[in-house]
């Protein structure tokens, strides 16, 4: 993919967060592979998918990160937030408790990322209208209060999934264009963040640090 010197490359890291079983992994698989797994199991550790999106004729790589919803896994995932420029904070419209956790997720996001990160509140599983516990207005209300974008999605029937990611990517792109947000900082971070097992055995020392993560 390396087009040496040709055109700009964009790589945006976006994290997906929210309680267990709100549908984070399926939102991601719907976006990246247009797939939905009815028997999707709890995510263990950290996973990510890369999806290329075209915006204003530019190719943008969205690297979307997915992790476990259980509180305890937070200890593993401070690396998870590193370099993120966008975040989807997800709840399940059919389970009120997942909506009530949103503030906690926002707090966590704020401690790991700076305020320029593009944030969107996502009410997932909107196909479950008959057992809805969180109204659209409640979602909107919270989003306005916290200064977030808001959308309701269904990973199951695809409603608004691409749109949710596109809005976030667009917002990041605009911020990058206006130099509010510097996506190079993530690239730089990646090239510094080489594999160091224990103290400083750097597997990639022989390569110079100028490679961006997009040049594989």
């Amino acid at each position: 993919m390396a087009e040496a010197g040709g055109g700009e490359e964009y790589l945006f890291k976006i994290v997906v967060i929210g309680d267990s079983a709100v549908g984070k992994s399926n939102l991601l698989s719907r976006f990246a592979r247009d797939e939905f797994d009815h028997n999707s199991k709890a995510t263990i550790g950290v996973e990510f998918q890369t999806q290329v999106v075209e915006l204003d004729g530019k190719e943008i790589k969205a690297q979307v990160w997915d992790t476990a919803g259980q509180e305890r896994f937070r200890a593993v995932t401070s690396a998870y937030y590193r370099g993120a420029v966008g975040a989807l904070i997800v709840y399940d419209i059919s389970r009120k408790s997942t909506f009530e956790s949103i503030k906690r997720w926002l707090d966590e996001l704020n401690t790991h990322c700076d305020t320029t990160v593009a944030r969107m509140l996502v009410g997932n599983k909107c196909d479950l209208e008959n057992i809805r516990e969180v109204s659209v207005d409640e979602g909107k209300g919270l989003a306005e209060e916290e200064g977030l974008f808001f959308i309701e999605t269904s990973a199951l029937d695809s409603t608004n999934v691409n749109k949710a990611f596109e809005i976030v990517i667009r917002e990041i792109y605009d911020k990058v264009s206006r130099k509010i947000l510097n996506s190079d900082s993530y690239k730089a971070e990646l090239s510094v963040n080489r594999v160091s097992l224990a103290n400083g055995v750097d597997l990639s020392k022989e390569k110079n640090g100028a490679l961006s993560c997009c040049s594989r």
């Binding site: 990646l190 993560c213 594989r216």
Partner: peptide, 12 residues
């Protein structure tokens, strides 16, 4: 891993 990967992300 040594020859092709440059970041923790790729190894992961």
């Amino acid at each position: 891993i040594i020859e092709n990967y440059n970041s923790m992300d790729e190894i992961m």
